[in-house]
């Protein structure tokens, strides 16, 4: 996995290993869903982490002295920011999107279908007299 990080000073092999374990603890693999420690998701996360470098580093430092489950349970502000990043990267992975029933694509330009809904529900409201306050 070293190629994952060659251009990135954020993480060395040991930290990468810790990161992967932490991510798989946060979102473990299950059925057709990869874990968040999947190499492709980790790669995306590392490249997206530039602005949160300090927070990611702090979380990894915490992992050196705490069990992974405790790092999660402590809910430090750094971990919250890191957690948001994890969700952002995890739920845009092709395999994850397919597994949760989304097409793996951006919303634009195709957009989405939306059913018209049941307009007969409006009938009782249409029958109501105007009730805004007269002045």
């Amino acid at each position: 996995m070293a190629d994952l990080i060659t251009s990135d000073s954020l993480i060395d092999d040991k930290a990468l290993d810790t990161l992967t374990k932490l991510l798989n603890t946060m979102i473990p693999p299950s059925g057709d869903r990869p874990g968040a420690g999947d190499p492709e998701i980790v790669r995306d996360l590392i490249s997206a982490a530039q602005e949160l470098e300090a927070q990611v580093r702090n979380v990894l430092t915490l992992c050196e002295t705490h069990a992974l489950a405790d790092v999660i349970a402590l809910k430090t502000p750094d971990f919250s920011a890191f957690g948001a990043l994890v969700l952002q990267c995890y739920y845009r992975d092709d395999r994850v999107m397919a597994a949760i029933g989304m097409e793996p694509r951006s919303p634009h330009p195709q957009g989405y279908d939306l059913e018209a809904g049941d307009w007969s529900l409006l009938d009782p409201v249409k029958a109501r007299k105007p009730f805004y306050r007269e002045v």
Partner: peptide, 14 residues
Amino acid sequence: PLGKSGSRLAQGFN
């Protein structure tokens, strides 16, 4: 469109 969300809540208001 009402969609599923609008229809569901409309029924609640009704």
